[in-house]
């Protein structure tokens, strides 16, 4: 069944569309969510279910010409998992959540500070331009690390690099982003 067929069924509020969508993409969604939340199966299951429900609720706003069905699902799953991660950290108040990547732990910690959560629209526009301007491989590194919160180990395995090479490349990219952001902010403020 094609994505168009699935979308059409869900727009008609037909459960079959949901079943088809899950058959096709559940594995991928579990992979994304597990990468952020670790191996807490109950949280993962709830997160994936929330993803389906959010998609179902907002189905009329998805434009398959702009992005594929799976891309929308990936974004929803990722954001749902991040929210769950922040809440887990806040409520359980553990100093270090086991079994998740370092970047996910750092994110969970730093997000408790409200200042780190405030992001302006202009900053996001800048970020889009920066990411779009990167070479393909660098873009993949940034997206894997800061969008999907994958560990350097997972990234290295996926991209056929060593962990040291991944960390080194990411460090240079991070420095570049920080420098460019700083310059951009100065220009913005005149």
């Amino acid at each position: 069944m094609t994505d168009e067929d699935i979308l059409s069924l869900i727009k008609k509020k037909n459960d079959l569309g949901l079943s088809m969508m899950a058959e096709k993409y559940e594995k991928l969604l579990v992979y994304i969510v597990a990468g952020i939340l670790g191996s807490r199966s109950r949280d993962i299951e709830e997160c994936v279910n929330d993803t389906y429900l959010k998609f179902w609720r907002n189905v009329d706003s998805y434009d398959l010409e702009k992005a594929s069905l799976v891309t929308y699902l990936k974004v929803i799953a990722r954001n749902t998992a991040l929210n769950r991660l922040r809440d887990t950290k806040r409520h359980e108040d553990r100093t270090h959540v086991e079994d998740i990547s370092d970047i996910a732990n750092v994110y969970a910690d730093q997000s408790q500070n409200i200042e780190n959560q405030i992001v302006r629209k202009e900053d996001m526009v800048w970020m889009n331009e920066m990411i779009a301007s990167l070479p393909e491989r660098d873009r993949e590194l940034m997206i894997r690390k800061y969008f999907y919160l994958q560990s350097s180990k997972v990234i290295a395995k996926s991209m056929c690099m060593t962990v040291t090479a991944v960390d080194s490349k990411l460090s240079r990219l991070r420095t570049k982003f920080k420098q460019e952001f700083h310059n951009w902010e100065r220009e913005e403020r005149g």
Partner: peptide, 9 residues
């Protein structure tokens, strides 16, 4: 990470 949340789809 938060800035990436606003990435164009």
């Amino acid at each position: 990470v938060n800035l990436m949340s606003g990435l164009d789809i």
